[in-house]
Structure formats: structure tokens, C-alpha cells
């Protein structure tokens, strides 16, 4: 495998710059487009890392999210963000995040947990060795998410189903009209 670190660092710098632009820009549409640029760069990074499954998923989801967010954004008349971020809130969250990192380092650094990357691929070695003979699925990623880890996928399906149900119940017009009729009656 050739050395891909320079390409990955370039993508990483691009993603960091894109995220900062997305946070700091005043125009909502520019923020949406910078977020999408970060997502597309992430998809290319997955391709470099040899994960075409995740790259495909990331790409198509990014396209869909871009369309939905742009449609949602251009419906709002005033897309400029006027409010400033609360300095106290930013400082507090930074301190809390630092504390989290510190305590995490204390817990994971001391003992009780194995070293990072040691032993290498303890769980995934079983998947890689028995995935093909026990499922006959040539694509190992699919063998893992739909056979070894199908229960996790069921959880994903349940989350997606519930969130769509909630979004439709909140956003649709019919329910609103019915409630207003109840209130007025």
C-alpha cells in the first residue's frame, strides 16, 4: 500500500477550513454549502482509506442532505444570521470538553483497559476469517452489518422509522388544521 498520508492531510485541512467557514459565515446558504463540501471531502477520504461502501453511502447521503437543506434554506426569506454566539457558553463548553478529555485520559491511561490497538483486530479477525465461509457473501461489509451485526441494523431501522414518523406528525398540515378546529369548537 502506497503512502497516502499527504493526500489525507490535505483533505483534513480542507475539512477543518470548511467547518470553520460553516460556523463563522453569516449567510445560511453559504454555511449549508460549506458543510456539504466537508461531507464530500470525507467521502473522498473514505475512498483513499479503502472503504468504498462507506464512500458510496456518504456521497449519496451528502447529495440528498444538500438538496433538502438548500430547499429548506431558500424558503426562508432572511438567510443572514444576526445573533452572536454567547461567549460565556463557548468558554463553558470548551472547559467542559477539556475536563472530559482530561478525565478520559486519566481513566484510559491508567490501567484496566488494554493498550490502544492491542491486541490488534481481536473481534474483527473472527469476522474476516469466518465471514466468507459462514455467510457466502462476497462483500464482507454486508456480511457483517446484515449477518453478524443484524441486530444493530434492526436498531438503525427502528430509529429511522420512528424519526420519520415523528417528523411527519410534526410537519404535516392536516394535523394542525384538525387541532385548530378542536380548539375553536
Amino acid at each position: 500500500m502506497e503512502n497516502i498520508t499527504p493526500q489525507l492531510y490535505t483533505l483534513l485541512v480542507f475539512m477543518v477550513v470548511g467547518s470553520i467557514v460553516a460556523i463563522e459565515t453569516r449567510n445560511l446558504l453559504s454555511a449549508v454549502i460549506s458543510v456539504s463540501a466537508v461531507g464530500f471531502a470525507l467521502s473522498i477520504a473514505f475512498l483513499f482509506l479503502g472503504a468504498p461502501d462507506i464512500a458510496i453511502t456518504q456521497l449519496v447521503v451528502e447529495v440528498l442532505v444538500l438538496i433538502i437543506l438548500i430547499r429548506g434554506t431558500i424558503l426562508i426569506d432572511n438567510t443572514a444570521i444576526e445573533t452572536h454566539r454567547d461567549t460565556l457558553a463557548v468558554v463553558t463548553s470548551l472547559i467542559l470538553f477539556g475536563l472530559l478529555l482530561g478525565f478520559g485520559a486519566m481513566i484510559f491511561g491508567s490501567s484496566g483497559f488494554p493498550e490502544f490497538g492491542e491486541p490488534l483486530m481481536r473481534v474483527s479477525r473472527v469476522y474476516v476469517q469466518t465471514g466468507m465461509p459462514s455467510t457466502y457473501a462476497a462483500n464482507l461489509v454486508t456480511a457483517i452489518i446484515l449477518d453478524f451485526r443484524a441486530y444493530d441494523t434492526l436498531g438503525e431501522v427502528a430509529v429511522l422509522f420512528t424519526s420519520i414518523l415523528g417528523a411527519l406528525a410534526l410537519l404535516r398540515k392536516d394535523g394542525k388544521v384538525a387541532r385548530e378546529e378542536v380548539v375553536s369548537a
Binding site: 453511502t57 449519496v60 462483500n139 446484515l146
Partner: peptide, 24 residues
């Protein structure tokens, strides 16, 4: 999906994108 990269989620998003394109 079980032979080449892809799968139910990625393919489903592509089909959904086709109909969203139609709607747009």
C-alpha cells in the same frame, strides 16, 4: 450489495434521489 460495494442503504438513497430529482 452482498457481492460488490453498496447495499440496501446506499441503493435506497440513490432510488429516493431519483424521485426527488423528478419532484424538483
Amino acid at each position: 450489495g452482498h457481492l460488490t460495494p453498496g447495499g440496501g442503504f446506499a441503493g435506497g438513497v440513490i432510488i429516493a434521489c431519483a424521485f426527488i430529482l423528478l419532484m424538483l
